[in-house]
């Protein structure tokens, strides 16, 4: 089979993927990216052989989170120096300083805890905007599908669409709309 040797070369090549993180949860999108970095998407996968790919992530500044996750979620860094060695920072606080930090940590923590982890993270290229250097963008052959559907904002709809949207009645002017956040007890109390 010596004359088929040339055809095998592309199977062992490192392919480059592109992922758009616009309106995506970082922890869910980390689960989709990791198989590409790890090489489990290929049938030639073996834990000892290095079959991972490169992934370029763009628009990490525009990631989305749940209800109050920006306020409640915090990264903790402990330097083991007891007086004021522990540093706690909220998600919004980190995101303002470094817009790629939260996405990087989400991928790093949800990966398998091996010695390979640092080397796989070196193949993840993160960018806050759509501005990617052309040297990297040349290599890109395909893009990864987004796990979550990006919803359309209310501002993006035109006024005609909003008027024509079917509704049974108009709200009275004094009525206060709920913001949709209810506990389980409140729902049980109201519904029966």
């Amino acid at each position: 089979m010596a004359h088929y040797r040339v055809q095998q070369w592309s199977t062992f090549a490192r392919t480059w993927w592109l992922f758009d993180a616009r309106w995506q949860c970082p922890w869910i999108s980390a689960r989709t990216i990791i198989p590409y970095l790890q090489g489990t998407k290929k049938p030639i996968y073996h834990p000892l052989s290095d079959t991972g790919d490169h992934v370029i992530v763009i628009n990490t500044r525009l990631i989305a989170m749940k209800n109050e996750r920006w306020i409640t979620f915090k990264h903790i860094h402990d330097s083991r120096y007891r007086p004021k060695g522990v540093i706690e920072k909220r998600a919004w606080q980190i995101h303002a300083e470094e817009p790629t930090k939260i996405f990087e940590k989400a991928v790093y923590y949800s990966m398998d805890k091996n010695l390979l982890r640092r080397n796989l993270m070196a193949r993840l290229h993160l960018f806050p905007d759509e501005s990617v250097p052309e040297d990297l963008l040349k290599n890109v052959s395909d893009c990864i599908r987004q796990p979550m559907l990006a919803p359309k904002r209310l501002d993006e709809y035109t006024e005609e669409d909003r008027r024509n949207f079917p509704k049974l009645f108009d709200w009275p002017k004094d009525f206060v709309l709920d913001d949709g956040f209810r506990t389980k007890k409140q729902i049980e109390f109201q519904e029966p």
Partner: peptide, 15 residues
């Protein structure tokens, strides 16, 4: 469709 603008030059694709 979102990423068509970024990779519209198909000649630059190299594996």
């Amino acid at each position: 469709n979102l990423l068509k603008d970024l990779i519209n030059n198909e000649k630059s694709v190299e594996i």
